[in-house]
Design a protein around this nucleic acid. Structure first.
Lengths: 219, 219
DNA sequence: CGGGGACTTGATACTGTTCAATTTCCGTGG
DNA sequence: CCACGGAAATTGAACAGTATCAAGTCCCCG
């Protein structure tokens, strides 16, 4: 690929600036100028857009290995908030350097493009979910998506802790917290899952999956 | 910016491959390999994602000056369909060349990044709309967004033709075609708009805007 | 260990869907 | 160019899915 030692060093430099955030801390806020993209190392982050009238929409829950902040490239200004849902470690990737280095390293360039594209595809999946699924289906999709992402990181796909409140889940999925709670209880009664507060166990992934047609791949 | 004559020529080459599509033609289909991005010159395109169970979701209506196809970068495969809603002219921009040229022309590179980011921001706006607005608000937002985009292209912001059916509008906005129809009639009775089939006139943008808090900027 | 937020559950209200019946529009073929 | 036929749109009535309001419990943070 023609990566020189100097370039390699630059790339390493990019990932060295790790920073710790406490639960509730903001990585960035809507309106802040674009400085960096943020690569999550550990922890859990939520992103949310705000509406002038006070409404807000959670646009995603991000975990280790995921990169956020790309909304800011469009106008050199962040258009959403990013908040730590638990204590987290995050790498700041100065976007200017990323672009510059991308010009020298086609692999890096391509990688950046794929990451942005993946976000677009994910968003389309959520539009499908919000636009055409019922509450049960949305929640089933949500749980299976979490399950899959935990599995991909070496954690149990069947037992995990929710890092967000019912309110935040509901906001993300376009439903009220009471509906989230009721639907979780309903899944539990049906023997599909077991819930106790934030501890969730998926008992019957197959039938849970049946709730919304098929795979939870693109959330 | 240090653009050489040769590079300039390459850039021009990119935009030369214009192609005509008839109403109903597909620019690309879900599953097709990534070849190009598509810059719309004239006409109207809709993009839609498909779900295994047959459900589909319109993810956008695109018009002159807008670029689509970025969903395909993630996996080198398109994840949605793009269909011409009327006869249209579209430039194909071979993505490989775009990336290559981006390495030489920082301005082009930055431009591509902004376009992808803009799509992400737009999608977040739609998530907000789908997740937290009522039918009236969604439709008002939709009409004002169209109005604004027509205005930006030198057309009347107050009188225009819808290029899509009630079904397609409803699918995009997460509601049924009957609800779209009813809500349009309701807006008309309230003196906010005038509708006759696909011909829409916005009579009272101010009060229409009041329906959903504020600006239609990010749709 | 105290208190406030998070969660659960029930009863009721309401928005939007579904089903159905017409009407209108528009593209196609004669 | 007109007539035809199927698609698109409108409108009504009954129904379903969620939201809303409310009360009470549980958890966990400081």
């Amino acid at each position: 690929m023609g990566i020189t030692a100097g370039e390699m060093a630059q790339l390493e430099d990019l990932t060295r600036m790790k920073r710790a955030y406490r639960r509730g801390d903001y990585l960035y806020r809507s309106g802040a100028p674009l400085q960096s993209l943020y690569a999550i190392r550990t922890g859990f982050i939520k992103t949310q857009v705000l509406h002038e009238d006070g409404r807000e929409q959670v646009t995603g829950f991000q975990m280790a290995g995921e990169i956020i902040g790309m909304d800011a490239i469009s106008n050199d200004t962040h258009t959403c908030n990013a908040v730590a849902l638990e204590d987290s470690e995050v790498c700041e990737l100065p976007f200017g350097k990323l672009e510059e280095l991308g010009r020298k390293l086609p692999t890096l360039q391509r990688h950046l493009h794929k990451i942005m594209s993946r976000e677009i595809v994910r968003d389309h999946g959520i539009m499908l979910l919000l636009g055409s699924m019922r509450a049960e289906e949305r929640l089933a999709a949500f749980l299976l998506n979490l399950s899959q992402r935990f599995a991909a990181r070496g954690y149990s796909p069947s037992a995990f802790q929710l890092r967000m409140t019912r309110q935040e889940i509901g906001n993300y999925l376009g439903m009220k917290l009471e509906t989230v709670s009721r639907t979780l209880s309903q899944f539990q009664e049906a023997g599909l899952i077991s819930v106790r507060n934030k501890a969730v166990e998926i008992l019957d992934a197959k039938n849970l999956r049946a709730f919304f047609g098929y795979s939870a791949s693109s959330l």
